[in-house]
């Protein structure tokens, strides 16, 4: 009996069809597994190995190269605090220290209630809003101890369920079609199964994130802070020329 659900197996097969060689689907398939189980579970590894014609040792060996794959169960929310240079200069270690005390755990650890797993991360590419953290890879910039407390509270209370899906969920938008072009790299595979038209456009989380949002205007607190990656990008169209 496969461990992956019927739907996920079908999604995994659809992923395989996107590549000229099966093994290329390994990372996407592991994300899928992590979405299902919250971590890269041993049972799932065996499914993925079989699907891709690999040994479980190879799948595990490859998965363990990548930081995003957790081979052991983690909390509902994986909180990654960037401590790399830009965030460090903006007080990331002080922030991390605060979160450690507040959660009662250390990087690599999980809170007793299973709610949070804390990580001390390398640069997350939101240095314009340092220090930053991600929660299940949803970005929260310009973080301060106070905003962290508010964010943690929102997470615990389930107020951010739409923005921050459970750990493992990466891209909630599904590919709407298979391969259409055919050509030298392989034939057209026609439409993908399970086209979800409602999610193929805009997810609720995306709708609620505003971009760009000028730094520091705190539109609605940490919860709705957008990844302000474009905050000062060049000159705004309006103010240019």
């Amino acid at each position: 009996m496969p461990h992956l659900s019927e739907d996920n197996l079908e999604r995994a097969r659809a992923l395989v069809a996107l590549y000229p060689e099966k093994r290329s689907a390994l990372i996407p398939a592991l994300h899928l597994l992590q979405e299902q189980d919250g971590y890269v579970s041993p049972e799932g590894i065996e499914d993925v190995a079989e699907l891709l014609g690999l040994t479980p040792a190879e799948v595990r060996g490859t998965a363990s190269f990548y930081d995003m794959f957790h081979l052991e169960p983690v909390g509902k929310y994986v909180v990654a605090v960037c401590t790399n240079i830009a965030c460090m200069l903006a007080g990331a270690y002080e922030l991390l220290h605060h979160i450690e005390e507040s959660l009662g755990t250390h990087p690599g650890g999980t809170t007793e209630d299973g709610m949070f797993t804390l990580e001390d991360a390398e640069c997350l590419a939101l240095c314009g809003n340092a220090p930053c953290v991600t929660v299940n890879w949803r970005y929260f910039g310009d973080m301060t101890p106070e905003r962290w407390e508010a964010l943690a509270e929102d997470l615990r209370a389930g107020r951010l369920d739409a923005e921050v899906p459970p750990h493992g969920t990466l891209c909630r938008v599904r590919r709407s079609v298979g391969l259409l072009a055919g050509g030298a790299a392989g034939g057209a595979t026609g439409p993908m199964p399970a086209v979800d038209v409602t999610t193929s456009r805009t997810t609720p989380a995306m709708a609620s994130t505003v971009l760009p949002a000028p730094a520091g205007d705190g539109a609605g607190g940490a919860a709705s802070r957008s990844p302000g990656t474009g905050a000062q990008a060049g000159r705004q169209a309006g103010e240019g020329s």
Binding site: I45, T55, P56, A57, E58, V59, R60, G61, S64, F65
Partner: peptide, 22 residues
């Protein structure tokens, strides 16, 4: 042609490992 062991981990934590239980 029997990759029952593979490298796992990264950097200086790289190890040679079989799959646990296999």
């Amino acid at each position: 042609g029997e990759p029952g062991i593979d490298l796992a981990g990264r950097s200086d934590a790289t190890e040679v490992a079989n799959y646990p239980g296999q």
